[in-house]
């Protein structure tokens, strides 16, 4: 558990407005060698993501200014965002109605219930992503 940090060079954008959660994720991901950027605001997160600088985007749905679902739709809309290289993983504690759920399944690369997964388990989950 106390291995020295070996950078794997992968960049993660963590869109999360709950500071304690982003703190925990940043800690675990940094330890696992990821470069992590935290952005709590929806609109700014969209702009940051559009720089296409990330391998993984962890996207909360309930965030200020524009919702995570809107961010997801805009990132997947090629008229707004050029082809994104990042894998988008939705991280949420909310339930979705059928239509939203289906739409997320179409547009996102993964989906996590935050209460169901510890930071260590998140790292394990991300290690299985083909990035």
């Amino acid at each position: 558990m106390t291995d020295p940090v070996v950078r794997n060079g992968k960049k993660v954008l963590c869109v999360e407005d709950e500071r304690f959660i982003s703190e925990l994720y940043a800690r675990a991901l940094t330890k696992a060698g990821y470069d992590i950027v935290v952005e709590p605001d929806g609109q700014r997160a969209l702009e940051v993501a559009q720089t296409n600088n990330f391998d993984i985007i962890l996207l909360d749905l309930m965030i200020p200014t524009i919702t995570g679902f809107e961010v997801l739709s805009k990132l997947r809309d090629t008229t707004v965002t050029p082809q994104l290289k990042a894998k988008i993983i939705i991280t949420t504690n909310l339930e979705q109605r059928e239509e939203i759920r289906k739409s997320i399944e179409d547009q996102a690369d993964g989906y996590l219930v935050k209460a169901e997964i510890t930071p260590r388990e998140l790292v394990e989950f991300l290690s299985h992503l083909d990035t």
Partner: peptide
């Protein structure tokens, strides 16, 4: 749902 956020934190900090 409101319980889930503190629960996420609780589990996260216990692990940390």
């Amino acid at each position: 749902h409101e319980l889930r956020t503190p629960l996420t934190l609780l589990r996260g900090y216990i692990e940390a």
